[in-house]
Design a binder for these strands. Structure first.
Length: 936
RNA sequence: GGGCGGUUAGCUCAGUGGGAGAGCACUUCCUUGACAUGGAAGGGGUCACAGGUUCAAAUCCUGUACCGCCCA
């Protein structure tokens, strides 16, 4: 028995358990061994994470696709898992240590700290997984993976070594984006350029032997300590006479050449720029062109590092001012800036200070101001690897939906820079590189391989005697000690996105040749937000194309893309369009929405709002609205049950006889086609809209209302068929709605079968409707007439202020035989829904009656003495005006010879029909007005 | 500076060449035996602006304005 309220909080956990108990989400179910595979890999949420609205949208859309394809009979694998999220997770655990006043990571040491992170992961790492289940995600949880699993780590090492050997991973000393708060390098993508109000200091640098100055402008005066030159544009009329002279760096005394370089834009600042190759990306390039020294003046926390800094001191004569500058050793960059500006001012070397807007690089994790910093890091040669990825998208082997994202993809890929993959943190995949005492690098998949290579090298150059080498090689313990003590493993770990880039194949078991890899790769679709196209999608394309190949009969191995379709969805914003953020306090928590309105309501809201290419402005009110939709459906099912509508095995939609039933079958088929086509096109909003309208505005508003007389009437063939048809249509609704609202539909699927024959499957495993051959235009025309008649009567009632409770008689005047026949068939239905006392026929319209024109018939409500004749005349006149406007518009078209000549035949024909209809209607209205006049 | 997107009802937004739509909000009415988390009816729009293409433009093209995002 269906309760009179739907309680999502009670139902959802029970339903989810039923799915899991039945293994409904398991890939490779035996009965689907021959089915077409369908695979989506989840964008792995961070283990630190908890479900936010972006996850809710992302996973709702994936779940819709997976449930849809599963019902279409495919063998679906939705591959779940989590990401170790190096920097983010390390930060969480470090913060926890601090809060609990426990030893810091540095204090406890690398091994103990990593152990600690694993403990934390074991304890709280599955929070997000539990939350995804609450959303209803139909992942195959038996295959859950973690980017630092043994298997996935093996894939990481294998890829690193292979790319290293191919020359596509290399180590290089160059400027990187350095985060001084996290004390690690980060990649270009993790840098945000933030426009900031600041000051532009114009500093006078004395020119040697002239008593004059060259003025340079900078927003970062403290970096002057690392200056090695001043540059002037070679065609700068005003300043080019300085080229070749020598400037002397204030506060330090370093002699610096004034060089010619086009980088010094004559229009900007003073036209002369200070060159600090160790602390600015542009200056680094200038320095390279002019073979300048690099003077690094910061330590890894961006504090001044001057004492015993040979680069800083080189060529600088001792002086009192130098000593005062050296006293700034250890000052943070901002404190140093203040001191340096003070001293320059005191020395009269500040020409002026301007207010300015400039961009400051910030780390996306820490928010810290980043420093260009000269370090050794590992890089992926992305340019080479990008080429096949670009080609694959050009050749449409991978398709972006919506397609405009391809431009973004190309734009970035064609200008791609080397990818810095090493991070100076501990939580992550430690780089499989070892260094010998001579600096020689050994990279291999296992420590034993490294030891073997190293021994070969060091015996070869006679650092180690062959005998000793043999001894080490033959003893596991000595090998380990050799690797640890003689060699030294790189301390750094890989960028989190390195392992994520392998996700589509590493989760399927690569590098092993697993059956899953063979069956589910390449995956079908990838669903993600545009913010990680570069971070993730592009890199999966690069890695996938490099490592994955497919055998094709009679052909060479072919490189294969990791996914056929990339669906890019929008960002979820708050109701005002602002990005949700904790600091703004405008976050709508998906779990709160689920608690309050149910997971189905949240899911449906997100799907209904997921129009391609537009952000979602979410509000609780919308969720509430779709909760009401779930309630509506629930009550429709309850109504069906109360009226004995149950699945009837004898019923066949193709053989229904009753017009009303043929009509709802026709409408169901139409809705089914719409929903199917929309999901196939990734138009989730259209699919949601189609099923919503069908359930509410067709099935509930009209069908259930119309069949009430049948269901409450005498038993018989019509009643039997109607009960079966109502149940049939409801079942089809449950199927079509299931991908969007899995919980309430599954529950109704179960409950509604309590009185009929048992269901063969859970709804999640049942079949997607196909409705071929169920269209019925005749039924549509007939019920359309009934609907129009009822609507017209209701309209006029309200318009003429006739109380709803007053039953009215209806007279059909001069009705056609078809109308008489239809009226006879539907009088009971029309009387009920239009609240009529009775329906009769007459040759002429009675005097003083309200007159309605419905599809060419005149329906009259005789209310002589009751109706306000003036109001009725006004109403009819207004209708006439509307009719005239229609006619005018259509005739304007039809009188245009070019239109008749050039527009498609069916369009012209359609306009003619419209005109004829409108003219006939106009005639009836004129007649009605005439009669009204006569009755006055 | 380069690129992308947006501008349609009071609000949030659908709508890819042929009669301007939805949800919410608003107004009026209704305890009609599934549902008031509901039902019925209704008001409300120069589709940002200016040109162009076309028999026909919210829709295609060009430009302008404003808003947003990405990249440098």
């Amino acid at each position: 028995m269906i309760e009179n309220r739907y309680h999502p909080a009670e139902v959802e956990p029970r339903i989810y358990k039923a799915w899991e108990d039945a293994g409904a989400f398991r890939a490779g179910r035996p009965e689907r061994a021959k089915a077409q595979p369908y695979c989506i890999v989840i964008p792995p949420p961070n283990v630190t994470g908890s479900l936010h609205m972006g996850h809710a949208l992302n996973n709702t859309l994936q779940d819709i696709l997976c449930r849809f394809e599963r019902m279409r009979g495919k063998d679906v694998l939705w591959q779940p898992g989590t990401d170790h999220a190096g920097i983010a997770t390390q930060a969480v655990v470090e913060r926890q240590l601090m809060e609990r006043q426990q030893p810091s990571s540095r204090a406890m040491g690398r091994e103990a700290f990593i152990k600690r992170v694993w403990e934390w992961k074991a304890e709280s790492g599955d929070t997000i997984i539990r939350q995804l289940k609450r959303l209803g995600a139909s992942c195959d949880w038996s295959r859950e993976r973690f980017t630092m699993d043994e298997g996935l780590s093996r894939a990481v090492v294998k890829v690193f070594v292979a790319l290293y050997r191919a020359g596509l991973i290399y180590k290089d000393k160059r400027l990187v984006n350095w985060d001084p708060s996290l004390k690690t390098a980060i990649s270009d993508l993790e840098v945000h350029q933030v426009e900031t109000r600041g000051q532009l200091w114009h500093i006078k640098y004395p020119i040697e032997g002239s008593g004059g100055f060259v003025v340079v402008a900078t927003t970062r005066p403290e970096t002057m300590l690392g200056d090695v030159a001043v540059a002037v544009h070679p065609e700068n009329e005003k300043l080019r006479h300085l080229i070749g002279k020598t400037a002397v760096l204030p506060l330090v005394g370093r002699r610096m050449p004034i060089i010619a370089d086009t980088y010094a834009d004559p229009e900007k600042g003073t036209g002369a720029v200070k060159i600090t190759p160790a602390h600015d990306f542009n200056d680094f390039e200038v320095g390279r062109r002019h073979n300048l020294r690099l003077v690094n003046i910061f330590d890894d926390e961006a504090a001044l590092d001057l004492k015993d800094n040979a680069d800083f001191l080189e060529g600088v004569p001792p002086s009192a001012q130098l000593d005062r500058t050296l006293a700034l050793h250890g000052f943070d960059r901002l404190a140093a800036r203040k001191k340096i500006v003070e001293r320059l001012e005191a020395a009269g070397l500040i020409d002026k200070i301007e207010q300015t807007l400039h961009v400051v690089p910030q780390g996306d994790r820490s928010g810290a101001v980043l420093e260009p910093f000269l370090t050794d890091q590992w890089y992926v040669e992305a340019k080479t690897m990008a080429r096949p990825a670009i080609e694959a998208v050009r050749e449409r082997k991978t398709v972006f939906v919506p397609p405009q994202w391809e431009a973004t993809f190309f734009n970035w890929m064609e200008n791609i820079q080397p990818w810095c993959i090493s991070r100076q943190i501990w939580w992550g995949h430690q780089i499989p590189a070892w260094y010998g005492p001579d600096g020689k690098i050994f990279v291999a998949e296992t420590e034993d391989d490294v030891v073997a290579e190293a021994l070969a090298h060091y015996t070869d150059i006679e650092e180690i005697s062959p005998d000793e080498g043999d001894d080490i090689a033959s003893d596991p313990e000595r090998r380990a000690r050799f690797a640890r003590d003689y060699l030294h493993r790189d301390d750094d770990v890989l960028d989190t996105w390195f392992s994520s880039a392998l996700w589509p194949f590493s989760t399927l078991g690569w590098p092993d040749h697993t059956p899953e890899l063979k069956r589910y790769y390449p995956t079908s679709a990838l669903v993600t937000g545009f913010d990680i196209i570069f971070f993730w999608v592009a890199r999966m394309m690069m890695m996938g194309l490099h490592f994955m190949q497919q055998e094709r009969p009679g052909a060479a191995l072919e490189k294969v893309v990791p996914f056929h379709t990339v669906y890019i969805h929008a960002l979820v914003r708050d109701a005002a369009g602002a990005k949700m953020s904790k600091s703004k306090g405008n976050v709508i928590d998906p779990l709160e929405m689920i608690d309050e309105y149910g997971a189905d309501a949240l899911r449906f809201t997100l799907a209904a709002m997921a129009a391609q290419g537009r952000d979602i402005k979410l509000s609780a009110q919308r969720v509430e609205g779709y909760r009401n939709f779930a309630t509506k459906l629930w009550n429709a099912a309850r109504f069906a049950e109360i009226n004995g509508c149950a699945h009837d095995p004898d019923f066949s939609a193709h053989e229904a006889k009753e017009t009303l039933n043929r009509w709802i079958i026709h409408e169901t088929a139409k809705a089914g086609r719409e929903v199917t086509a929309a999901i196939e096109a990734y138009k989730f909003n259209e699919a949601a809209g189609a099923i919503y309208r069908f359930v509410w505005n067709v099935y509930c508003d009209w069908y259930l209302e119309l069949v009430k007389p049948v269901l409450t009437g005498p038993d018989g063939a019509a009643k039997k068929e109607t009960r079966a048809a109502a149940a049939w249509a409801l079942d089809e609704i449950l199927r079509l709605l299931h991908p969007f609202m899995p919980f309430v539909t599954e529950e109704l699927w179960r409950v509604s079968a309590e009185r009929g024959p048992q269901r063969r499957h859970l709804l999640a495993l049942d079949t997607w409707p196909s409705h071929d051959g169920l269209d019925d235009e005749a039924a549509e025309a007939e019920i359309g007439w009934v609907v129009d008649l009822i609507t017209a009567i209701r309209s006029v009632r309200v318009e003429m202020n006739i109380p709803a409770a007053t039953p009215l008689p209806l007279v059909l005047a001069g009705a056609s035989p078809q109308t008489v026949e239809r009226t006879r068939r539907w009088s009971e239905f029309v009387q009920r829904l239009a609240r009529l006392s009775d329906i009769s026929f007459a040759d002429a319209v009675p005097k003083g009656a309200l007159q309605l024109v419905v599809r060419g018939d005149v329906a009259a409500l005789p209310l002589a003495g009751i109706i306000d004749l003036a109001a009725e005349r006004a109403r009819l006149t207004k209708e006439l005006a509307k009719c005239d406007a229609d006619i005018a518009r259509v005739e304007q078209k039809l009188n245009n010879a070019d239109f008749v000549k050039r527009a498609p035949e069916d369009v012209v024909e359609g306009e003619r029909e419209k005109r004829d209809e409108a003219l006939a209607r106009k005639q009836k209205i004129i007649e009605a007005l005439q009669r009204l006049k006569e009755s006055e």
